[in-house]
Write a protein that binds this DNA or RNA. Structure first.
Lengths: 245, 245
DNA sequence: AGCATTAGTTTCATTATATGGAACTCGAGT
DNA sequence: ACTCGAGTTCCATATAATGAAACTAATGCT
């Protein structure tokens, strides 16, 4: 089913810094003969996987794709439960919150809740982050065994301190980052899993560094922790470590 | 490229009341030989268009799909501008807001902003609504000419009052519904378009009927109207009618 | 436990479909 | 009018999808 793989490759091009695609973009990015690219985009258009922007030759994901992220969320009890917790925390503290999942060495947000404070971190759902460089990613990596992490990051240099970071996360029960992925932005994250489906999500709050002191941070950790603990208990996540602040 | 169409058909199954799919679901829903369905799901899995839930045979949309809704939003200046306006209105009034697009006779939300009030309308992004039965849909239909609407709804009974509703929307510059799609829920919506790309979006606020009186409603309309008017001016949407309250 | 039933995968010959090179069309710029 | 870039269409060939049936795995039933 090589058409499917080609179609998937086209869809993958939309990640991050590429909001639209033309036939020649596809030729250049995927190294495919242009006859092929032209027919492929046409077929994807007809299948509603893509649509053209106005009457130009630029393509973006089609309407069909819009509903799928919602279906993903609906498919998971865990994501639903986690969303309730983060939505509540986000609106009571006024900061932006996320639910994220890990995919190999990357994390992606599957749901976001905009903060309400005047100064807030703008939500960037759909952007992939390196797992080891974000609090949310480390909260998820910490759920793996040490050997699994080693296997995952085999041949990946400059990760000398990851094991230590993760064991700290395992001990504390939460992950924290200060101005790591983005200057001026701090984040706290707690992971919880559903043993029946083997999926793990991270509950995460991001906030402007200058706006929150240690006490405020600990209050948010406590709020996320309460919610996460309830989810862990209800779903039977025995690996969950109640955060200690 | 019939594989592509089959794959798209599978993805379409996820709409609304079907959060996951098995091989036999696909056989039943699409009437396809099961050998075929089995291979198709396998190929879609390998292309990251689907993933299995845990180690069961149930499938949901894959990670690849999660980013596409975000790419869609990034591809459109109009959606970005509209999001700013609705996010602002949503957080200042505390009610839930949407950005929606029309697709034939249906409307879909492409972005949502959860309200912060204790009593708020829960956001249901990704659900398709009949355009003629919602404020957001009528705000978009009102941008069409009368003959276009007639053509769109040709052979569609029980729509005697749609033209009148739309001309009211055109005159007022906004659409309003009270407990129409959902009991206890009111909505206001204003549409704006980008003439360069021919796309139109609806800015919409939904709120509990009991919580807002006429004055409160008019304030929200005014807030949306100011934002929409700015967008219309910046993008050159000459068909935009400034709402009169 | 043993048997029946349902769900999913694999096999294989046949058919339909994708492929890529080249020719062709359309627009924009000079 | 000419050229360049971008996109589409044509055609013979190679490749991949199809459906029936056989096979395997899981689940329910007595």
């Amino acid at each position: 089913m090589s058409v499917l793989n080609n179609a998937a490759d086209v869809l993958r091009c939309f990640g991050n810094d590429c909001p639209d695609l033309t036939v020649s973009d596809v030729v250049r990015l995927l190294g495919m003969p242009k006859a092929n690219a032209s027919r492929l985009l046409k077929a994807m258009r007809e299948a509603n996987m893509l649509e053209t922007i106005g009457d130009s030759h630029r393509h973006r994901p089609g309407r069909l794709m819009l509903d799928l992220a919602a279906a993903y969320r609906r498919s998971s009890l865990l994501i639903g439960r986690a969303s309730e917790v983060v939505a509540e925390a986000s609106s009571s503290f006024g900061h932006t919150g996320y639910i994220s999942v890990r995919d190999g060495k990357e994390v992606t947000a599957v749901a976001d809740f905009q903060g309400t404070n005047a100064l807030r971190v703008v939500s960037n759902i759909g952007r992939r982050l390196p797992a080891h460089l974000s609090a949310t990613g480390r909260s998820l990596l910490a759920r793996l065994g040490e050997d699994e992490v080693r296997a995952l990051y085999a041949g990946h240099g400059a990760l000398a301190d990851l094991p230590d970071q993760l064991s700290k996360v395992r001990h504390q029960g939460f992950a924290y980052s200060s101005q790591e992925a983005t200057p001026g932005v701090d984040a706290i994250a707690i992971a919880v899993a559903d043993p029946r489906t083997d999926e793990a999500v991270s509950l995460c709050i991001v906030y402007p560094h200058t706006l929150v002191d240690d006490k405020g941070r600990d209050e948010m950790i406590a709020a996320l922790a309460r919610g996460a603990a309830r989810i862990a208990e209800d779903l039977g996540d025995s690996a969950f470590v109640a955060p200690r602040i």
